[in-house]
Computed example of a mutant assay.
Amino acid sequence: MTTTAVRATARGSAGAVPGPWTLGLLRGALEIKQFFRLRDQVVFTFSFPVVFLFLFASIFRDHVGHTGVTASQLYVPAMMASGIMSTSFQSLGISIAVERDEKVLRRLRGTPMPPAAYFLGKIWLVLFTGALETAILLAVGTVCYGVRLPSDPGRWFHFAWIFALGLTACALLGIAVSSVPKSAKSAGSVVVLPFLVLQFVSGVYIAVDTIPGWMLDFGALFPLKWMCQGLRGVFLPDSAKVLEQAHAWEFGRIALVLAAWCVGGLVLCLLTFRWKNRRDG
């Protein structure tokens, strides 16, 4: 083979090396495959918000004020927002902490795989599971509780960016909080507790108009409250605006808050993420 042919072959081989985006997609496919291999995890992940929706919607079924909206219909978008945060913040916060404790991250860091590919794989995982979770809850809400799908394309546009920004913000916060637990055994407690508190002060389990103002102000510091409010604005009639703290859907403010949390979450990830435990040096 001539020198020219060798160089051409080398250039072709170098060009065939997959980049971070391709590796991230492949890593995401692997993450999804591994997720569905754990059947108990799959059942719990997708059934938990559905069960809670069924319980709360069955207990509270009366109409709320003069809005023409039932309490069960209020729970559907709130549970959708909670499901998005569950499949991103909670899932990543626990799973990455476990992988770090089991030295999976340390081994991956020693491979030629770009670090970005690992995080892209996680994003693909939460995007897939978050979309599936949302679709399940929306199907249950429309079939069982009379939630109407929007006929206005503008509302579907709002749904798309609320889902994308909310999922991204919560995923980044999940990656950041994964550095807090000192071991895999404590990961569940460390991550679940703040998520549980936020669900109560963000209008997931309790109607916004019955939550004390100071609790709402605290919940407004975090993405979940704004995701709940935005999804209510998408799937509920405008008559339900009066139930919100500001008596408006505030889509502009929701976009700003979620975008700010995307930036803030990325900064937190860059400042706090570690590939190994503190005890490993």
Rank of each mutant, 00 (worst) to 15 (best):
G166P: 12
L271W: 09
R274P: 00
F273I: 01
L268E: 02
L216S: 12
W249G: 00
A240R: 10
G166A: 03
A171Y: 12
T210M: 02
D152F: 04
P237Q: 13
V197Q: 05
L243E: 05
G230N: 10
F222T: 13
V177T: 05
G213W: 05
L224K: 10
A259F: 12
A169C: 08
A255K: 03
Q199M: 13
G174V: 10
A184K: 15
G230I: 00
G233M: 04
F218W: 15
L196M: 14
W214T: 09
K276P: 03
Q229A: 11
F195D: 11
S179H: 06
F200Y: 15
G233I: 07
H158A: 13
V234A: 07
L258G: 08
I206W: 08
A220P: 09
D238M: 04
F157N: 09
F159P: 12
P153Q: 04
W261P: 04
R232W: 04
L193K: 12
L196A: 12
A220L: 05
A184H: 14
V257M: 02
A184Y: 11
W249E: 03
C262S: 07
L221W: 11
S189H: 10
L256S: 11
A207C: 04
V242I: 15
W261G: 00
T210W: 11
G219H: 00
P153N: 04
M227K: 02
N277C: 08
L216I: 14
I254K: 00
F273Y: 02
V263R: 06
R253P: 05
A248P: 09
L173W: 13
G174E: 06
L173A: 11
F222E: 06
F163D: 01
I175R: 09
F222S: 11
C228A: 15
V204W: 12
G233H: 03
F218L: 14
G219K: 00
W261L: 01
V242E: 13
S186G: 10
S183L: 05
W275F: 10
A259P: 05
G203L: 05
D209G: 04
A169P: 06
Q245H: 13
R155T: 00
L221Q: 06
I162W: 03
T210Q: 02
M227W: 09
F163A: 00
A246C: 03
L216F: 05
R274Q: 11
P153H: 03
K225Y: 15
Q229E: 12
F218R: 10
S239A: 15
P237W: 11
E244D: 08
G252V: 08
L266D: 03
P237N: 13
P223I: 01
P237I: 14
A207V: 07
